[in-house]
Nucleic acid binder design. Structure first.
Length: 263
DNA sequence: ATCTATTCCTGGCTGC
DNA sequence: TGCAGCCAGGAATAGA
């Protein structure tokens, strides 16, 4: 499941192959990924030249000389350079020297053209990797929900998903059900620094390949081997040995150590 | 305005 | 072997 480190890894892997290239053809096999008329999307894309690729949180913005291609990988989306088209290929862009595929089993992903970036749906908060401690703290104070749910909210902070929320809360020794706005300044500060550290570390390991996440060349990440609580239900806490527990917070499976992490 | 529950989707797993 | 039923979750949407 792609979160900030996985999306960053994908962007890094394909950027060099796309920037400066002209789209010579576009094909779609799903109306769902374009959230509308995919023929119009194709018309808008064919002939456009890619000028840059940006990431904000989990969003990918492929900047064109005539607009923007917004890509969100959702749960199972993949961008593959010169991959093999298959049953789940929802869109593909041809270039003179290769093809970019958008594969997505569960079709939670998006592959949409926008004339302007401002048209993007939903406001997203600052990027989790680059947000300053000061901004993180002041935004956290305004929130009244549980810290786990707040971390998952892209309007609060862009890029953190279920895996890295659990891992960051464990590292900061904060209980996932703690109320966000009531955390002390010291604990909030620690959460910020642990979160940035974990996201950076995960990028160095090319992300976490839990189910079928791969980068633009089909390569798996390795950070899943370093998860301390996510998916570790019943296993001993690496810090104190207590069994890792699984609860539900904000409708999401949540893994934590009941001894190390306090409200 | 802010928070919570529901919905979309399909492969993989469990249990009968 | 097959199949029903459930689970995973990002984020838009509806409801409180």
């Amino acid at each position: 499941m792609p979160e900030l480190p996985e999306v960053e890894t994908v962007v890094r892997s394909i950027s060099g192959h796309l920037v400066g290239k002209r789209i010579v053809n576009a094909r779609f096999s799903s109306n769902r990924v374009t959230r509308g008329d995919h023929a119009a999307t194709g018309t808008a894309l064919i002939g456009a030249t890619i000028t840059d690729i940006e990431r904000r949180g989990k969003q990918i913005w492929i900047c064109l000389d005539r607009g923007f291609l917004y890509v969100h990988l959702g749960m199972t989306g993949k961008l593959l350079w010169n991959g093999k088209p298959g049953k789940y290929t929802r869109a593909s862009l041809d270039f003179d020297d290769g093809t970019l595929l958008f594969d997505d089993i569960r079709t939670f992903g998006r592959f949409e053209f926008f004339g302007a970036k401002e048209n993007a749906l939903g406001r997203v908060g600052p990027d989790a990797l680059t947000v300053s401690a000061q901004e993180f703290l002041s935004r956290l104070k305004e929130r009244r929900g549980r810290i786990k749910a707040v971390l998952l909210s892209q309007s609060f902070l862009a890029g953190v998903g279920n895996i890295y929320a659990d891992e960051a809360l464990f590292a900061a020794r904060i209980h996932p059900r703690a109320m966000a706005g009531r955390l002390s300044e010291a604990r909030s500060r620690r959460l910020h620094s642990e979160m940035v550290k974990i996201l950076s570390e995960a990028i160095r390991h090319k992300g976490s390949s839990i189910s079928d996440y791969v980068d633009g060349f089909g390569e798996r990440g390795s950070f899943q081997q370093l998860h301390k609580v996510y998916g570790q239900t019943g296993k001993p806490c690496p810090s104190c040995g207590t069994e890792i527990r699984r609860i539900v917070v904000g409708q999401r499976g949540t893994h934590y150590c009941p001894r190390c992490q306090r409200v």
